[in-house]
Lab assay of single mutants.
Amino acid sequence: EEWMVEKALMVRTGLGARQIESYRQGAWIEGVHFKRVSPSGESTLRGTTWYNYPEINKFIR
């Protein structure tokens, strides 16, 4: 699984929702560690946020 939603990321990493938000707003790079995608497939600020687990795992190492 490369891309996953927040709940799956929480299960895989043990991070809480606030921790994920903090990383997203600070250290993680949009387009690398996470992306927002609307149902139409376009990038957007209001779409579902998807997280790239392999890239996040590399960051944590």
Rank of each mutant, 00 (worst) to 15 (best):
G41H: 09
I20P: 00
P54D: 11
L9E: 00
E55D: 03
S38L: 11
A8S: 08
I20R: 00
A8F: 07
F59G: 03
R12T: 06
E1G: 10
K7T: 13
T44F: 09
E42T: 09
S40H: 11
K58S: 08
Y51C: 01
G14F: 03
T13V: 04
T49I: 15
F34S: 00
W28A: 00
F34E: 01
N52W: 03
K58L: 08
Y23P: 00
L9F: 04
P54K: 09
K58E: 09
W50Y: 14
E30M: 05
P39I: 13
R24D: 02
Y53L: 13
L45N: 13
I56N: 00
T44C: 09
K7R: 10
H33F: 03
E42I: 08
Q19W: 04
V32W: 05
Q25I: 11
E1N: 10
V37S: 10
F34K: 01
G26K: 10
Q19K: 05
P54F: 12
A17K: 14
I20D: 01
Y51P: 01
W3I: 00
E2A: 07
R46S: 15
M10Q: 07
P39T: 12
W3A: 00
G14K: 05
L15W: 07
S22K: 13
E21V: 06
R61H: 13
E2I: 14
R18K: 14
F34D: 00
P39H: 11
Q19P: 02
N52K: 02
R12C: 10
S40M: 11
E42W: 05
M10K: 05
K7H: 12
T48D: 11
P39S: 12
R46K: 13
M10F: 04
S22R: 12
R18I: 10
E55L: 07
S40V: 12
N52L: 03
A8N: 09
V11S: 11
S40N: 12
Y23C: 06
R36P: 05
F34R: 00
W28K: 00
S40C: 11
I60F: 11
I20Q: 01
G41D: 10
E2H: 08
V32D: 02
Y51Q: 01
M10G: 04
Y53C: 04
G47Q: 11
Y51W: 03
R36C: 15
S38T: 11
Q25K: 13
R46I: 14
G47N: 10
T44W: 09
R36N: 15
P39E: 14
A8D: 15
I20E: 01
Q25F: 07
W3M: 01
I56A: 01
R24Q: 08
V37C: 12
K58P: 02
V37H: 07
S38N: 11
K7E: 15
R46F: 14
P39G: 12
T13W: 02
Q25P: 02
N52A: 02
I29Y: 04
V37E: 13
S43A: 10
T44V: 09
F59D: 03
N52R: 02
R61G: 09
R24K: 11
E6F: 09
F34G: 00
T44P: 12
V5I: 10
R18G: 12
P39C: 11
F34C: 02
P39V: 14
I29W: 03
K7C: 13
F59A: 04
S38P: 13
K58N: 09
Q19D: 10
E55W: 03
V37T: 10
R61A: 13
R18L: 12
K58V: 06
T13R: 01
I56Q: 00
I60C: 06
G41S: 10
R24S: 07
N57G: 06
V32I: 12
V5Q: 15
W28P: 00
E55F: 03
E2D: 11
R61C: 11
Y51H: 00
R46G: 15
R12L: 14
H33Y: 02
E21N: 07
L15T: 00
N57Y: 14
R61P: 04
E30S: 05
T13M: 06
K7N: 09
A8P: 04
V5R: 13
V5D: 15
E1V: 09
S22V: 13
G26L: 11
R12W: 08
V32K: 07
V5L: 15
A8Y: 08
G47R: 07
S40G: 12
F59K: 03
A17R: 14
P39N: 12
A8H: 10
A17G: 06
R61W: 09
S22A: 14
E42R: 05
R46Q: 15
T48R: 07
L45H: 12
T49L: 15
F34L: 02
T49H: 09
E2S: 07
W3L: 01
S22G: 08
A8C: 12
R46T: 14
R24N: 03
L9G: 00
G31W: 06
G16I: 09
T48I: 14
A27P: 11
T49R: 04
T13D: 01
S22C: 15
N52T: 01
R18P: 08
E6A: 10
E6L: 15
T48P: 06
A17I: 11
W28V: 01
Y51K: 01
T48F: 07
I60N: 03
G41N: 10
G16Y: 07
I56R: 00
G26P: 00
G41R: 07
G41V: 08
E42L: 08
R18V: 10
L9V: 04
I56Y: 01
E1W: 09
H33W: 02
S43K: 07
Y51I: 01
E6T: 06
W50D: 02
R46D: 15
R18T: 11
V5N: 15
R46P: 15
F59Y: 07
R12E: 05
M4R: 00
I29K: 09
A17L: 10
Y23N: 03
E21K: 11
I56S: 01
P39R: 07
W3V: 00
L15F: 05
G26A: 09
E42P: 09
T44D: 15
Q25M: 13
E55S: 05
G31D: 05
Y51R: 00
L15H: 01
K58G: 05
R61F: 10
A17H: 12
M10E: 05
E6Y: 07
V37M: 10
T49Q: 04
A27S: 10
L15E: 00
Y51N: 00
A8G: 06
F59M: 06
I56T: 00
E6W: 05
N57L: 15
W28N: 01
Y51F: 05
Q19R: 05
E2N: 08
E55M: 08
E42S: 10
I56F: 02
G16F: 07
R46E: 15
A27V: 11
